[in-house]
Design a protein around this nucleic acid. Structure first.
Lengths: 349, 349
DNA sequence: CTGAAAGCGCTTACAG
DNA sequence: CTGAAAGCGCTTACAG
């Protein structure tokens, strides 16, 4: 087992100082640092002869960047279910990181005492190993994000995140516009009463869908009352619930997730009703799970790959041009998928 | 933007030397290094007060470990196809890395001039950023593996890899045993003539399947001649080819991949024959793609998750007990999936 | 055009 | 029980 050669070895063999060798190897010669072609050649010859390879840790420590982007998720990044939640995000992230010449560091050793993951774990801010980081996942800790921002650590969240008091960078899907668009499509088909089932407005992504719905209701003059917006568990989407809605004159719904949509479907079936003949459903996102007998949902897809790509671009831009006041937030359009679950309302026929 | 505090700051605040602070923070107190409980407490108080987080690059450089495991693949780690090739490997790797307290560094910035990826890139050995690395992927460069081994860099390959002159650590699926088992099952059903379609023995995984087949043929006294083992492209698995094999008396085949198996199936259908009534097929691995009308294949599954887990364990063991002559190679059993594509041979009825 | 030297933030013998 | 000091392998002013 031979020992690795160091920059000093290269310098000695080439008959130059480590400063010169470093400059040559890092291709920073040409402006302030001028090196004769002969010296240049001697350095590269020495590198080749010794099989020199730089130690990235030393480079980092000496103040250079290490061209590593961190990836932090508030949970396992490779979940067990086949339909991998993060896969398309990661695909975009890797694709763009490779293009920009960055490695990816996955922070997996971050389990905190509550069983979740934390950035400020034990005695180490994990993220400082990387030049900057991409954060993903629903269960973020806003205090950590604030601290990160206050520390001046460069990061971008994949998904809109608002933290009171600080502004953080993110790339998000434009759920608001997509939800509004689907709502308008239903209105244009003749629906006059539409209701919404979403999650409590604890997550920005839920807020965006809900506000898209409300916005479209205003625009289309659809009524909003206490039977229009629901934050209820799947178990509450019962046939009784649905019957009540039908009695109120509702002819369609915008629903935020496949599980809820499927529950709605089951309840309609239980009442002997079909989609979209008797009732229209638009799904606000793409399915998380694979269902045996799933209709061809009318929905929008979340631009996961693009969100990953743009997050890397934004972060790299931040790292390489820190003074550049580039946009720190970006909304990417969601593609509307026509599907087969919306139609003109029954009563309108 | 406050500046990060260093170990020296912690030491000063706690009124101790950096050596003591380092020992406390790294939990190495107790044997040679004895620290009073009060000192211990003062150090941790200082850490908390300053929000101290260690710089992993400095740790690495100073000869300490940084608890980072590298992951190197000879191609994108997140391929575009939905049925993600690496997903289950990564799942196992992450799971075990988290358990062992290691982070994961994905080397994505490794594109070489040929469009592939290389470990020794430019003037840097990427892998030295990590304590040790896990390598995956079919298109490895054996020269790089040799150099890595000669440099004494700790790594484990997921999948059997043989490099002339050096012995490298790996975790592999036991394809040989699984192929032999399926061959024996067919023989026990009454098949006396079985043929094999595989890849040219350029990959260890192909060699293992082929030798498992040959071994079982010997054991079961099945004939081996020039129509028994094929390394042919999918396009050559034509009805003509199949008819020829049937004429030679073959009643079943062991085939190394879904694409080839499906081609075989099509050719049989074209001849008006059905599986398994007229012909038996065993698939040597699990499908890579999702097929519209795929039979319930008799096959074996590759223990991807377990291979990932064991690779991490082996690597960590190598890192933490370098003197420990633990097994450097491990073969994990493949699970046989009964399926519906093998049966007693037609002629035997 | 090039070199001597400081310094990045740690760990680890070694000395006491 | 604890500290002073060397050293890991680089980069980067700074001096000439």
């Amino acid at each position: 087992m031979k020992t690795r050669s160091r920059l000093a070895d290269v310098a000695k063999l080439a008959g130059v100082s480590t400063a010169t060798a470093s400059a040559v190897i890092n291709h920073v010669t040409g402006r302030n640092i001028r090196v004769s072609p002969e010296t240049h050649q001697r350095v590269w010859d020495a590198v080749a002869q010794l099989g020199y390879v730089a130690n990235p840790a030393a480079r980092t420590l000496a103040g250079g960047k290490n061209r590593i982007l961190g990836i932090f998720t508030y949970g396992p990044i490779f979940p067990f279910q086949h339909h991998d939640f993060f896969h398309l995000f990661l695909l975009g992230i890797e694709e763009e990181a490779e293009r920009q010449g960055y490695h990816l560091l996955l922070f997996t050793n971050a389990t905190n005492t509550n069983g979740g993951r934390s950035i400020f774990h034990d005695d180490t801010n994990l993220l400082y190993m990387a030049d900057g980081s991409i954060l993903l996942g629903l269960n973020e800790n806003k205090d950590e994000l604030r601290r990160l921002q206050e520390d001046g650590y460069p990061f971008v969240y994949v998904g809109r995140r608002e933290v009171p008091g600080v502004s953080i960078s993110f790339t998000a899907g434009d759920y608001q516009a997509a939800t509004a668009e689907l709502t308008c499509q239903l209105a244009n088909l003749g629906h006059r009463r539409l209701f919404f089932i979403g999650f409590p407005p604890r997550f920005e992504s839920s807020i965006d869908r809900e506000s898209g719905f409300i916005q479209a209701c205003h625009q289309q003059n659809l009524p909003l009352d206490d039977r229009t917006i629901f934050h209820i568990p799947v178990s509450d989407i019962t046939p009784e619930f649905v019957r009540r809605q039908l009695e109120e004159g509702y002819t369609g719904a915008l629903i935020d997730m496949d599980v809820q949509c499927q529950a709605m479907l089951s309840s309609l079936h239980a009442l002997g009703l079909n989609v979209p003949q008797d009732f229209s459903i638009a799904m606000l996102g793409d399915p998380h799970y694979v269902w045996d007998n799933s209709p061809d949902w009318t929905m929008f897809t979340i631009p996961r790959r693009e969100m990953g790509i743009e997050a890397v671009r934004m972060l790299v831009n931040q790292l390489e041009y820190p003074q550049n006041p580039a946009p720190r937030t970006i909304f990417l359009p969601c593609r509307i998928v026509p599907g087969q679950t919306i139609a003109a309302p029954y009563r309108a026929n």
